[in-house]
Write a protein that binds this DNA or RNA. Structure first.
Lengths: 329, 329
DNA sequence: ATGAAAGCGCTAACAG
DNA sequence: CTGTTAGCGCTTTCAT
């Protein structure tokens, strides 16, 4: 059996409450007694039972993190960030993967919500209604999505896409294609909005290839449309799709970047390992995880005192091998 | 406030104990009463407080999972498997990423161990001594490592590497190179042992390029040694390294598979997306996660009743574009 | 088959 | 500054 607060109390010759105080509110205890208690606790290897503490304080010391698909290389980085920051703040993290299934997601939320102080939710496609209901009951932070007054952490897509378009314009490109992700995804909408604005401002033509699954295969599928559209450059919803594009373009006999320039978004590891390496809009994913935790913790401290519960994280274009000057035919 | 067992009791016109029984040991309650209770619980959206339950039963209903680096594409799949199986069994999962740092790992273990019923540990390089100490206190299952009597889930590396060597032999290769992972890794030792046996049996020459970090860069670094060694085929510790090899070999002007054949291990997503696609020994990663949970649960049920607390998961060579007949010069 | 009572380990009033 | 008391929500004897 684990040592309990009583045993420590006996060992130190004080009452359990004093032990409790010495550990949680050291200021309220005589320094001599405190020392004695701490040493006793040390000696016995005492660790407070968090469940018991939680029962009375109403706080669990746990956070929940729900992601749609850990196999998507975007998420591991985010999870690492959440992890790291949570650990610093002495919180443990429940992780759940909804497998892109909204129903499973609701279940997970319901189960997890009981055992955590707050929830970080990546639900690009869940119903707004459901999320609002949830937000009413639980302290939660959304990642990669924004609506209503729900606290959120998102990336500054406008900036990143602006940089990408400026880069292409500087290389002499006049026509750019867009390979979209899931229609229902908030990021997709945000990104295409930014792209419309940026290309219009730069006087470039924009060809939208439509929506595709945010996988390698999605990029493969889009490639032929892109080729047919005759654009000299293309931006994809994410890096995985851009890599799919790259593969199919090569198979079609097109050279990247001589014949067509390709840009991705995310900066996943593989984007620097492909051939050619992929020019991409880098997202500070780990930082986003940390920011989400920070936001959540501040929300927990002062439930309504956070004026603007929104964070927007920087993005940065990384120019690599897949972009070059526009073909001059 | 969440609804408590008392409110359900009042709503159903019974005592709290009856509610408890109706939920946890339905057999002990009159079926009519039980129905009434269940409906009341339903109506009030009652969910038992796990912490409170745990306080008395001594079980938390949580599992812990510690991985060295979620950014390594091997782990997300494993995590997904653990997740999925745990959810089915109504367990929640604490995830922790030790960032390849043994010290952080010990901390995590210590913190998590208190809040879970059992632990799944991926610690390719942690000290055996530390793990044994831990295993004495906590119910735990190791993944990808095996020693002593510690329960474990590993892959059948012998089989997979045997298949790979047979494949190369069938293609006429006589000399095979090995690009090793971390020296301290159990898997690395297991794999090279298997490789030594298989090549010897097949009468092939084996060139060992040494140990490298299990990253893309490790493969890149090994490539030149491999070229210099003059082998016609090479097997890498994992897919990420094999992709690094592929990249560097291409940069050196070698054609894969015409000049040299390359085989990886893991079957990560990217291995089917590279060019050429990567022949690889596929590991049932999700299944390993599920198996680890299964093993852990059976250990929790009958602490000493599990005769052989070891699982060995199948491996399967996937032949793709990076292997071909040996050059005939 | 059901209820009353006790208590898991801890913290938070309330006294002193 | 410290001890006593009560009780968080639940399960589990022990009665009935």
């Amino acid at each position: 059996m684990r040592t309990t607060i009583r045993e420590v109390a006996r060992e130190a010759g004080v009452s359990p409450s004093t032990v409790s105080r010495a550990l949680s509110m050291p200021g309220l205890v005589n320094s001599v007694t405190r020392e004695r208690v701490l040493r006793a606790a040390q000696r016995l290897g005492y660790e407070p039972n968090r469940a018991a503490r939680g029962l009375i304080t109403g706080k669990t010391g746990n956070l929940g993190l729900i992601v749609p698909d850990l196999a998507n290389p975007f998420f591991p980085s985010l999870v690492k960030g959440v992890q790291a920051r949570a650990r610093e703040a002495d919180y443990a993290v429940f992780l759940a993967d909804s497998d892109e299934d909204p129903a499973a997601e609701s279940d997970l939320v319901r189960v997890l919500a009981k055992q955590v102080d707050g929830l970080i939710l990546c639900s690009p496609r869940g119903r707004e209604e459901d999320i609002l209901t949830l937000a009413a009951t639980t302290t939660l932070v959304m990642v990669n999505r924004r609506f209503g007054r729900v606290p959120s952490v998102v990336f500054d897509n406008s900036d990143g896409i602006g940089q990408a378009v400026a880069h292409l314009a500087a290389l002499g490109h006049k026509r750019v294609g867009w390979v979209g992700g899931p229609r229902a995804s908030w990021s997709d909408r945000d990104r295409i909005r930014a792209l419309r604005a940026a290309t219009a401002a730069a006087g470039m033509d924009l060809y939208v290839a439509g929506h595709f699954p945010p996988q390698f295969e999605g990029g493969v599928a889009a490639a032929d449309l892109i080729v047919a559209a005759g654009v000299t450059s293309v931006i994809a919803y994410n890096d995985v799709m851009a890599l799919g594009l790259l593969g199919r373009l090569r198979d079609r006999g097109l050279r990247v970047p001589q014949d067509i320039s390709v840009i991705g978004i995310d900066d996943i590891q593989m984007s620097s390992m492909s051939s050619p390496t992929l020019t991409t809009v880098s997202l500070a994913k780990e930082q986003a995880g940390r920011a989400a935790v920070d936001l959540l913790l501040s929300l927990l401290e002062r439930p309504d005192g956070v004026r603007k519960p929104r964070r927007e994280l920087p993005t940065q274009l990384l120019v690599r091998g897949s972009t070059g000057v526009a073909p001059t035919d």
